[in-house]
Amino acid sequence: MKNRMVLALVILLVGAFLFANGSAETQSAPAYPNKTIQMIVPYGAGGGADISVRLVTKYLEKELGQKFVIQNVSGGSGTIGFTQLANAKADGYTLGYFSSTQTNDGLLFEGIKYDNTSFTPISMYASDPHIVIASKSSGITNMKQLIEAAKKNPGSLTFGLGGAWTSHDFLRMNLESAAGVTFKRMVFQGGAAAVTAVAGNNCSVAVPFVSEALAQIEAGNVVPIAISSSERYALANQIPTIKESGFDFEHTMWRAFVGPAGLSADIVKVLDAAIGKVMSDSEFLKEAQAAGIFTRYIGGSEFAAFYEENHQLYKKLIETALK
């Protein structure tokens, strides 16, 4: 008898939850966005991608008046997250983080279904430059010496990368074809490990992101050579750009927000406008600089065109490398 009463209570409770849930969803929907937005970040919490997304969404929440939930779907080297994003409903409530190279993952990994047509570009919000650094024992102090050293011993100057097919690796490919040299690849797990190897004189050159290299530059353990952006970096103003060193060369890794393919133009407009506003918020810019994020805003049709162009560019790079 007592048991049955408990059972009835349980059923009632569950029913109440179901009902409460059902009724909440039938309310009519005002303009986009009217509920929590999920943001898929295919990389781990606390990493560069995650940090930048969290900072931008913090301000986006104020702008759009809705909560953002960050999902770190980091499995399969990021491919699981991008697949999830590509397959998500294009209703504007599932968006994702995106960077330079992912539209070409299909060339690299078997079984990947997404490509450049699987996503709707929204806006770019950052573009991170690399810093070329050299070990003290290598004796290299500028770009010219670096290229000379590579030319003198073709294929034997060690070049540290943060991983295969990462922005580091693409920079190396670009640099090799621009200067007509070949380096000896040394692949580490992450840019910080590559910097450590250069600081320990185990590797001659590396191209980490600025945030990965600054500590060792300040400690005087590595020699900064040049920065790969078009302008010098405010917090390390003594480092010249690669362009200044006489090479017409620029390489950054951009970060952007995208949605699944088929996102309506209206939704893209709302999001793009909000992101644009955040990117000119002085408080945001201050926080971003402190967190080592290189903000750069490109939105609207300009970004859509850039996205396509970039896809073709990397496609060519990967195809040549795989040959």
Partner: peptide, 13 residues
């Protein structure tokens, strides 16, 4: 490390 960076505490000397 990530948490420090977001608080503007960049590790280093």
């Amino acid at each position: 490390l990530g948490a420090m960076i977001i608080h503007g505490l960049r590790p280093g000397p």
